[in-house]
Nucleic acid binder design. Sequence first.
DNA 1: TTAGGGTTAG
Length: 548
Amino acid sequence: MLLRAPSYPNVLHHHLLSRLHLATATATSTAAAGPASDASDLWIAKAIATAFLLSPSTASSGLAPFLPALSPSVAFVAVRRLPTAESSLGLFQVTRLAFGVAHSATAYRFLVARLVGSGLHEAALKMFDQMASDGHSPDGPCLEFFANSFAEAGHLDAALKLLARASEFNCRVRGYTFNKLMSLLVGRNRVQDAIFSFREQLASQFFTPDTCSFNIIIKGLCRLGDIEGAFKFFKEMRDFGCTPDTVTHNILVDGLCQTKQVDRGHEMLRRIQSDGLCVPNVVTYTSVISGYCKLSKMEEAFEVFSEMIGLGIRPSRVTYNVLIDGFGKAGDMPSAVSVYERMMVCGCPPDVVTFTSLIGGYSRSEKLDDASRLWNEMGQRGIRPNAYTFAIVISSLCKKNRISEASHFLKELSERRDIVPHAFIYNFVIDGLCKVGNLDEANMLLLEMVEKRCSPDKFTFTSLIIGHCMRGRMVEAIGLFRKMVAIGCAPDSVTVSSLVSCLLKAGLPNEVNHIMLIASGRDLGLDISSSKESPSSSGQNPDISVAM
DNA sequence: TTAGGGTTAG
């Protein structure tokens, strides 16, 4: 059939086109007399946007008669009115290619930001290039705007590539923008990428680093444990006109203290003070105190604390918390409580970290009644336990075989919407349940983990496998092993050797061969294709061969 | 945009 009745959108489309034709004629005649009215422009833009939405494929031919009214500003209003990034891009390109509309830099900025915001970063990059070739070479703020748009959408590499093109467009990028990007990279543990880009930028004439740029890089290196690398940048920064400040020194002191070089960190603190390089503050002192606490050198930690107070530097909540945790881990709860009381007398109210450290300290000292008293006191003070608090309470109860109480806390935790449960917290309870032979409840928790999108790990499965073996439930143990491999959770030597020894004891040597085949990934009867593609699985395969 | 604190098992 060659002829068919027009569909509803087509009728509407024709109606719109005829209305548009009238409006265009009015706008064109108004334009001849003077500036086109905003109201008329807006009406045309609305009509173009609607017509494009109704029939994007015929837009170029359908809108052709109204070319005289299609100014860049009208086209931009129409593009902005469209509901999706894809439709905005479509109309933008139709008006540009079919109607020769020379879009403004503002229109390009809008479109690129919208494409980035919708995750269409490939298209956004193409538009960026098109913008430049259309004569809108970006200036510094424009380049920064695009880089920020990409960075905010999580596309850090695209943002970096854009900033690296500053020289191509002969524009300068402010340190602030570049620093923010480096900080995001460091926050994602991409320290080496941040350093590479920083070096690249330092070599260019279009970027001037500031003290903050160096601080971010120095912090990144300290996080990697590369303190000597951090000191190299520290020595280099003056050559670029950047003076180290208190933050720079604090990062280095903390870097030393975190890598167990506390004496060196303490020495640096003294040198900062004697040489007047900068004014050490509560953060500098707290880093050194924390370093000594981690080495269980509580006497030295308290000496530094006293020295700080002697100099008139007021301890912060972090300082008190560091000491309380240190004394708790050293098994000295009376001193921990004494610091806690001092903290309150000094008008520094405790927070969830204070209580978690105290509860942890009492739990390690096997004083679970005191731990429980503090849990209640925390609630009375209106402080909510967080994932750390739950972890310490649940693990302590499990260590004392108080599994049903631990399950109660786990239930309370899993009902909290603001806490993402981690596998290791479930693992304490699953392991405890397996040890007391409550396998059904342990299996239920495995299901609950999956429901909560908390991926079980090799510890979860190994506890369950051993638990089932110990109760003679060999078929289920093998099933758990297969399930583990199938979901891409690589077993390690503990998993494999535990299961194998249980199978041998149970007189099932044939099953041992089968398990070995699955573990080596050579079991052709098992569909583990998804796990083979998983990077975590393939990365851990050598671990399995070690086990065999 | 940069500095100090608490959880981890088979």
